[in-house]
Design a protein around this nucleic acid. Structure first.
Length: 422
RNA sequence: GUGGGUGUAGCUUAAUGGCUAAAGCGCUUCCCUGUGGAGGAAGAGACUGCCGGUUCGAGCCCGGUCAUCCACCCCA
């Protein structure tokens, strides 16, 4: 026997049951996005590799991008993230856009890496961004959207949080400690690891980076101060907005949140599960130079976040908030009593479809009635119609409610209305 | 890329180194010549991931390989 061809590592098939979740997830994020006045956009799945070379972070580009040479010798990449494409699109259409640009998108991303829980090589991501304003209010709105999405999915502040920080503010505080500016990038890398290592190891890493004992102590005070944001007008504005929006329970200041992506220049934020073993479940921030980084003359500041479907699916399962959704779309199944009555069932199914009902006609006239009903049962079709010799004589059909087991003979011309009335 | 776990029927699993590899779910047929879920009966379905080694004998032990899961790195 020939070897069965397998799906590629890290890729997924979406059977109807899986699509039910995908559609549910997409519809929720679309509703939340649109409730804030955001518009949907899309870009190409493949971009020139150099688009990402600018700022996406070395690991993401050099090791995790699906890259290949096309037939003309261009080095291209399956998009590992959306933000660089967005920057390119906005930069190229700058003169035709109505700023502030408030856009969202949901689509496939590709990263060549080892699959594990909540992580594959092809996944979907919701990206939502505001371009134009350089204001803390724009940052706050993006964070408010994430919090609203939590609420939309039925997640509570006891379960999920958003941690907020400001890289620029942190840099300023670090510089006040007398730490040279060129150390900042290295420092960010260490701070990013703070919660993963012991306090002793953390201090040791800072020491190796050249910090004095006194500087380390002061830095720890800064990183642990939950009210540190009060010393920053920018962050105060963000927290004030979120407070007025009633979203305070979801958000907290955390000076150790820095994010890995290099293009973030100011505000950064991450979603977290309370008490879970998850790392950040989504993240975002402000990027003030991205359009110029992709080669535009103009500098358009932006802020946004990205949320992946695979991680959120795991989060919902962990929190017992995974939705129960039937993948069935059919309103009614018209059974076929016998081959010689097939045309009668066909005629009926056409009438029902014209009246606006999603109508299935059983496609095998030879199949026994019990098999057809079993099919309807398994597919969770709410109604089945039986059209046999008795019914035909009296211009009726038997309408069977699959969940209550009850059935009755009704006139053929009334059956569509009866189903719709339910 | 690094480390670890696991590979047995469509799925979930069982089987001290020893008989024809077992069960539940699912599937097919029948009980039921006009009716699904429950019940009963019968049946199909596995070269135990692959290659090699040890042994009288391997699903089980050893080596390799592939796959998969988990963790690290990085990230959604």
């Amino acid at each position: 026997m020939k070897k069965q061809i397998q799906i590629l590592k890290g890729f997924r098939d979406f059977l109807p049951g899986d699509m039910a979740f995908q559609n549910w997830f997409y519809q929720n994020l679309k509703k939340v996005s649109e409730s804030f006045g955001f518009q949907e956009y899309e870009g190409p799945t493949i971009e020139p590799l150099e688009l990402y070379a600018a700022k996406s972070g070395e690991e993401l580009v050099k090791k995790q991008a699906f890259t290949f040479e096309d037939k003309s010798g261009n080095v291209v990449a399956l998009r590992p993230e959306m933000t660089p494409s967005l920057a390119r699109i906005v930069a190229q259409n700058e003169n035709n856009l109505n700023f502030p640009v408030k856009w969202f998108t949901y689509g496939r991303r590709f990263r060549y890496e080892a699959p594990q829980k909540g992580r594959g090589r092809e996944f979907f991501q919701w990206d939502i961004d505001i371009l134009g304003p350089d204001s803390p209010e724009a940052d706050a709105e993006i964070i408010a959207i994430a919090a609203s999405f939590y609420q939309k999915l039925g997640l509570t502040p006891d379960e999920v949080k958003i941690k907020i920080n400001d890289r620029k503010f942190l840099a300023q505080q670090v510089s006040e400690l007398g730490i040279p500016e060129d150390k900042f990038k290295e420092l960010l890398g260490i701070i990013d690891k703070k919660d993963k290592v012991s306090e002793g190891d953390f201090k040791e890493m800072l020491k190796e980076a050249g910090l004095a004992v006194k500087q380390i102590e002061s830095l720890l005070v800064i990183l642990l101060d939950k009210n540190g944001y009060q010393k920053s007008d920018w962050l105060q504005s963000i927290f004030s907005y979120l407070d007025k929006a009633g979203l305070s329970p979801f958000v907290e200041y955390d000076a150790s949140i820095v994010r890995g992506l290099e293009y973030y220049t100011r505000t950064v934020f991450e979603g977290w599960v309370v008490g879970g073993s998850f790392r950040a479940i989504w993240g975002g921030g402000r990027y003030d130079n991205l359009t110029s980084d992709v080669g535009s003359k103009v500098k358009i500041p932006g802020v946004g976040f990205a949320m992946g479907d695979m991680v959120m699916e795991e989060v919902l399962k962990f929190l017992n908030k995974y939705p129960v959704i039937s993948p069935n779309n059919s309103d009614v199944l018209v059974t076929v009593f016998s081959p010689d009555l097939f045309n009668d069932s066909l005629t009926l199914s056409l009438r029902l479809r014209l009246s606006g009902l999603n109508t299935e006609l059983y496609p095998d006239p030879q199949a026994k009635l019990d098999k057809q009903l079993k099919y309807a049962d398994k597919k969770q079709i709410p109604y089945a119609i039986i059209l046999g010799p008795e019914e035909l004589k009296s211009d009726t059909v038997t309408l069977k409610n699959m969940s209550t087991q009850s059935q009755k003979k009704v006139f053929t011309n009334s059956v569509a209305g009866l189903i719709k009335a339910q």
